[in-house]
Nucleic acid binder design. Sequence first.
DNA 1: AATTAGCACTCACTTAGTTTGAGTGCTAAC
DNA 2: GTTAGCACTCAAACTAAGTGAGTGCTAATT
Lengths: 344, 344
Amino acid sequence: MVELDDRKLKILQAIIQNYLETGEPVGSRTISKYTDLNLSSATIRNEMSDLEDMGYIIQPHTSAGRIPTDKGYRLYVDLLLLDKNKEVENMKSILIEKADRLESLLEQVAKLLAVNTNYATMVTTPQYKKKVKFIQLTEIDDKQLLAVIVFEGNIVKNKVIKVTRSLSKETVLKLNIVLNTFLQGLDLAEINLPVITQMKEQAGEDYVTLVNDILDAIMQAVSGDDDFKVYTSGATNILKYPELSDVEKASELIYTLEEKKMLSDLIHNKMDDEETRGIQVYIGDETPIETMKDCSVVTATYEIEEGVYGKVGIIGPKRMDYERVVVTLKNLMVELDDIFKNKT
Amino acid sequence: MVELDDRKLKILQAIIQNYLETGEPVGSRTISKYTDLNLSSATIRNEMSDLEDMGYIIQPHTSAGRIPTDKGYRLYVDLLLLDKNKEVENMKSILIEKADRLESLLEQVAKLLAVNTNYATMVTTPQYKKKVKFIQLTEIDDKQLLAVIVFEGNIVKNKVIKVTRSLSKETVLKLNIVLNTFLQGLDLAEINLPVITQMKEQAGEDYVTLVNDILDAIMQAVSGDDDFKVYTSGATNILKYPELSDVEKASELIYTLEEKKMLSDLIHNKMDDEETRGIQVYIGDETPIETMKDCSVVTATYEIEEGVYGKVGIIGPKRMDYERVVVTLKNLMVELDDIFKNKT
DNA sequence: AATTAGCACTCACTTAGTTTGAGTGCTAAC
DNA sequence: GTTAGCACTCAAACTAAGTGAGTGCTAATT
């Protein structure tokens, strides 16, 4: 049995498109008039009945129209990805102005996307390579040192370290040299016990605690948690879609967006999976986040430079305008690429 | 006419307290049973009628009980501020663990407060004194310098500066000395044209652009916008209160919380006003934020050190449990004080 | 003079019944 | 294979009656 003939496909598409617009179950008569197929509602009904059997659409209750199932959406999305290149967004100009710092740039991206799409959005900070470029210790005053750690990709971390006794200029210089000799070019995994003990030896017994503190600081700067951020925007857009806006669901959803940790699941889970590099569409249950089972999520990956990735995601109702969202994201990725290339 | 005799006051208090709990209009019979005044509902009715004339309570519709007006709440709050010292919150221990960085500490505070109070919360980063403690330029590579600027209060800002040509070690050293000699101890207002021109002279003609870039970086680091942040949490708590949870209102409110800029009005407006240093209660229309006219906001000011202030705010329905909120905030302020004192 | 009991009245809320209309599935005719 | 016609279903909108918490007023009680 050939799963879907051309006519069924056209009908399915019409159903989905109509449903995307209205959010209401769509009936046979609507389709009969809506399409250029010139079929009576009765015929459509027969076809719809077939489509329901195949699991692409469903009736929310007897004597209601049909709405697409997750499977239906999935087919629609898969068939859709031959993009008609829509009007180019003019985000770019706005973005560049604000692009003085990566973080505020990303925040802006989230905001702009939310405003433009009318969905909720999220943007993660990039997962950068955690390779130490250099370390610089400076005295702030008698009791405090400032450790500046620069990682590959010019990500800079600061940490104030308390010391019990004042250190001489020479000591600080020496420590700087030791730290850099040992740690430069290493990533987190390579800073292992042998390196550490050797380094401590070099530094001299008196400074073991200090070296420990500095290593702690590096660890802290590096351990993703502290530093992996998720910006969200447009949470309230969710309330615009009746199927999500009852207090129960909306509450859960907005909470998930607020409690950003959960969102990182969506990304971390599959971060290294080659497949998820492009544009990824999760429909309903397909998302790894339980509370979003009534939504769809579209994610895209941006790349700041080789090996430094972040994600952009759009969260909306299952009947989100996939075409527009996918195209918008694709354009955005191109623009971000431009920005990062011209910047670095 | 003596505005309020003792009995009226007791009745008003009873009405408000009951309303705080239930969120429902409260009737005369309830009060008659609830209080130890031993008055019949009829008497209460008479008194309530008086209270309504005086503007402390109001009927949402004929033949409904009464609810407090803003004026009623205001009286209640003003009379309440002789705190019964409630159980000390155990936030402190949790806080200290997480207090490795000020920003994440403040985020945690917002979160904890939200969880404990069941209201929406906000915490602003402190407005620190913008006085330069020292500046450190370091080469990252041929084309990039890293400027680390430490301000009074150990706030550290980084900025990567691009240079067109490679600089020698000596040049960097010299620039460091010049920058520090001229800028140390100055705050933003004091970095004026004379200082700048003098500094440029000292640096030598070749480095005018570079000095400009560095000054720009400082400006950027200092100019509040970039750096004044507001953390919010518990936005979804708003949905727990029926009087705020209809889509219209909730949407506006949560949006206000998300769009943090508006919140800063609440604080900036009156930041320097001596009065607002303590605990501040805004009821309904009293808040400077239009969208919060159906809420009450309680704010408190924390102090990291002399002259470095930030605000903590709790946003809830007008019938929020003022007593608890005020006490919680007071305790929190004490705890934050402790943390900051032990840290600095 | 203050308090209270009693009573008629109001009005949001609930419940149950009714109507409406969009939509279906089936059958028989084209 | 397609379509017209018809009986049937069911959510949603409307209606009507009933309920009860609450009020304001008046007359009796303390």
